[in-house]
Simulated assay, not measured.
Amino acid sequence: MAIRKKSTKNPPVLSHEFILQNHADIVSCVAMVFLVGLMFEITTKAAVIFVTLQYNVTIPATEDRATETLSFYYYGIKDLATVFFYMLVAIIIHAIIQEYILDKINRRMHFSKTKHSKFNESGQLSAFYLFSCIWGTSILVSENFISDPAILWKSYPLTMMTFQMKFFYISQLAYWFHAFPELYFQKTKKEDIPRQLVYIGLYLFHIGGAYLLNLNHLGLVLLVLHYFVEFLFHISRLFYFSDEKYQKGFSLWAVLFVLGRLLTLILSVLTVGFGLARAENQKLDFSTGNFNVLPVRIAVLASICITQAFMMWKFINFQLRRWREHSSSQPQIVKKKSAVTKGRSSRKEKENGVNGTVTSNSADSPRNRKEKSS
């Protein structure tokens, strides 16, 4: 097989192919502009808005020892600049994982175009989900959620966030915003774009809603729960691409998917429907960040329930499609096996002289004896 030579022609600058081939380098240069801006006094104030977390509040840790201070953060319009910068970082990390890990595996496995795109999607998302699960769990442990789950509604409104909590939400928003330009960079098919847009939009809607409504603890718990189930699905798909006989991961994922939807609904109703509904302060106050009023609670529960119902509907359709494909493939396998057995039996019959064919003992056949006598 002849080795295909790489083209020595470089695409024109700022052309379609040039941007696709060098988008990681272009984005890196844009990100470096903000980092270099930190080095000069004139541009420091503008660059800091993009690189570091904004709206920092420092309060004393205890009344006795005022020298010890704690830093907390609240959200504001400047967070959009921070999200934009870390969106650039997400694009760079995406390109690094793609070039140095996924592309090397693809060259060895020789996947088809369909499997190639699905493998890249699962590879990127499984890495993100795993990292987010570990990070989110560590925040929940540090926030004492494990020892006191009632913090979901007792701490509301959680206007003051720790550095890890705010950075987690900024990173989540940045990652899902980076998925929009990746549709162009990864040459996503036109028929797949609507599905991807719905997928990305649901993440941004719920993460942004939890962030703006100060439901940070509830959003974090539900994200960790959801990400764990999604990680299991995508890691199972990666194993399936390497060995199509692998099905155990999908069976476990199917069970955990249903349990995850039930736990999501239970935690949401328990927090919003019961915990916040019994709170003393139920007045809308933008200055204190209190959105604990009946219309907001109904909207939150409705959005969560509709999303979970939509996911279950997609899940049921997916399982039914797999069952139909499996059931339709079974008769074909049986037909192939029967055809093989018939072929083997016909060969044996031919060898044994069935249906008037010449046998191995042809000298004793009636026709040969008649020919000899004549």
Score class of each variant (00 low, 15 high):
residue 343 G to P: 05
residue 310 F to Q: 11
residue 83 V to A: 03
residue 309 A to V: 12
residue 192 D to E: 14
residue 180 F to R: 06
residue 11 P to C: 04
residue 261 R to N: 15
residue 193 I to Y: 00
residue 310 F to Y: 13
residue 119 F to D: 00
residue 183 L to T: 14
residue 274 F to S: 05
residue 321 R to Q: 06
residue 143 E to Q: 14
residue 152 L to T: 01
residue 96 I to Y: 15
residue 255 V to H: 07
residue 240 Y to M: 07
residue 184 Y to V: 13
residue 225 L to W: 00
residue 248 K to Q: 06
residue 169 Y to V: 06
residue 167 F to D: 14
residue 335 K to P: 00
residue 156 Y to V: 00
residue 253 W to E: 01
residue 98 Q to N: 09
residue 96 I to F: 15
residue 150 A to R: 04
residue 139 I to K: 12
residue 364 D to V: 06
residue 313 W to R: 12
residue 33 V to Q: 09
residue 13 V to H: 14
residue 77 I to L: 14
residue 182 E to W: 07
residue 366 P to F: 13
residue 89 V to Y: 05
residue 181 P to Y: 10
residue 124 Q to W: 04
residue 230 E to M: 09
residue 15 S to A: 07
residue 31 A to I: 03
residue 145 F to L: 01
residue 58 T to V: 10
residue 40 F to I: 04
residue 164 Q to K: 15
residue 194 P to L: 03
residue 86 Y to G: 10
residue 5 K to R: 13
residue 160 M to V: 00
residue 13 V to R: 15
residue 152 L to E: 00
residue 208 G to P: 11
residue 69 T to N: 13
residue 162 T to S: 15
residue 179 A to C: 09
residue 208 G to C: 08
residue 265 L to V: 11
residue 145 F to C: 00
residue 233 F to Y: 11
residue 222 L to R: 04
residue 360 S to F: 05
residue 190 K to G: 00
residue 322 R to C: 03
